[in-house]
């Protein structure tokens, strides 16, 4: 087993442990997580597997295929996060606005 394989598998193992400890979530989530991490380990151990899938899809190398997919997922996550932030901002704005208007009503010294 080459150095990079050991390194990657160790990282994946750490992520797995982190998620298992942090998120005591539903069985479905755990199964999904296991599946994803299992696939990751599988691809690390057998990189030729990604090569074969890549060739099948018309991409030169397996690493390239993973790279392309990662970029798309990366953008998707950014957009989702941004939408979430905007929503949070609107909620916070609503709360602060309500507070401002309510306390102005109480402060009769202003009028």
């Amino acid at each position: 087993m080459s150095g990079i394989k050991i390194l990657l598998i160790t990282c994946i193992a750490f992520i797995a442990v982190y998620f298992f400890v942090r998120l005591r979530s539903s069985l479905f989530d755990l199964a999904l997580l296991l599946l994803l991490l299992g696939t990751a380990v599988l691809f690390v151990i057998l990189p030729d597997l990604t090569n074969r899938i890549a060739h099948y899809l018309g991409v030169g190398r397996g690493a390239d295929l993973v790279f392309y997919i990662s970029i798309i997922i990366f953008w998707f996550v950014i957009l989702k996060l941004y939408a979430r932030i905007r929503k949070l901002e609107q909620i916070i704005t609503g709360i602060i606005r309500k507070d401002a208007i309510d306390s102005a009503d109480q402060n009769k010294n202003t009028q």
Binding site: I96, A100, T110
Partner: peptide, 8 residues
Amino acid sequence: VFLLRHKV
């Protein structure tokens, strides 16, 4: 004059 204040 009315004064309203945003807390942040």
